[in-house]
Design a protein around this nucleic acid. Structure first.
Length: 283
DNA sequence: GCGACAG
DNA sequence: ATCTTGTCGC
């Protein structure tokens, strides 16, 4: 366990507070969600983003692969996909995931905007939490505010929030095992942070944790996740996860061949340095 | 003080 | 996030 730089964390806390002031929790979209029949009117493209890491990373200069995919709606067919290799020099600290991953997300979105702006998604599902966060500002909110795009947070694991009325990952899983398929995550203060959802609505046991990111209400967020789910994890994120994992494995294989540490001997072909990292993209 | 803690 | 085999079920 590496020690956490508290000075850095304090800086991050201030930054989260600043950005949170710009976060919108009501729908501000170019499509409409009809809660009564669960239909989405005018929605054609949903995005998904995720990052994978190859095993055996050094620790402070982590190689990683960020993936951005855009799927058609409601067919959920891949319209666009892009993976970019990056190096991340920011440590992971629970509650501050965005500081580690947001820069990479910004990068793939700028590439999409540059090359195929017409494929820009109307809403993006982010692998991580939105307002279901200790300070109500998870990575989905962070990314949404910085890029000013509608985002939804979808986490596979429960992030502990002390205001959550005695609930923990274990008790929640237990309830779903007993037939519950949807469960509001309400804090002691009465605040609803998000919702645990079993997309199939059947005997599914493992819920995903949905929360609004930026410009998307929780109700719309949950409707979207349900409409995009063929499996436990909604397709946009599932595909992004799959693609970025392929990239991470490629890095593993490459480093298994190359002699030990060519160091500054030569540069990897096709690489470029962008804003704090060496990158390589492929599609 | 110790444990818990998205990816 | 990543390290990991078999195994139960549709």
């Amino acid at each position: 366990m590496m020690a956490v730089d508290q000075t850095l964390v304090h800086k991050w806390e201030r930054r989260q507070k600043e950005l949170r002031a710009q976060c919108e929790d009501a729908d501000r979209l170019d499509f409409e969600y009809r809660a009564d029949n669960g239909a989405f009117v005018g929605l054609e493209r949903v995005g998904g983003i995720d990052i994978s890491y190859p095993r055996g990373n050094s620790g402070n200069q982590d190689l990683a692969v960020v993936a951005l995919v855009v799927l058609s709606f409601p067919r959920l067919e891949v319209l666009y996909e892009q993976c970019v290799e990056i190096t991340i020099d920011v440590p992971y600290v629970a509650g501050f995931l965005a500081f580690r991953e947001a820069a990479a997300y910004k990068q793939v979105f700028s590439e999409l905007f540059r090359s195929q702006p017409e494929l820009m998604p109307q809403v993006v599902l982010v692998d991580g939490n939105g307002m279901l966060h200790p300070r109500r500002f998870g990575s989905a909110c962070h990314v949404g505010v910085e890029l000013d795009i509608p985002t939804v947070g979808v986490a596979k694991n429960f992030l502990h929030i002390d205001d959550m009325a005695g609930r923990d990952a274990r008790s929640i899983k237990h309830e779903f095992r007993c037939g519950v398929s949807e469960m509001e995550l309400v804090g002691r203060s009465g605040t609803c942070y998000g919702m645990a959802v079993a997309p199939q609505g059947q005997a599914a046991v493992n819920p995903v944790f949905v929360s609004s990111g930026h410009r998307v209400s929780l109700q719309t967020a949950v409707g979207l996740v349900r409409s995009c789910s063929l499996h436990r994890v909604p397709e946009p994120i599932r595909v992004a996860d799959q693609r970025s994992r392929v990239g991470a494995r490629m890095i593993e294989q490459r480093s298994a061949q190359e002699p030990t540490k060519p160091s500054e001997a030569y540069e990897s072909p096709n690489s470029s340095t962008v804003d704090g990292g060496c990158t390589r993209s492929y599609s």
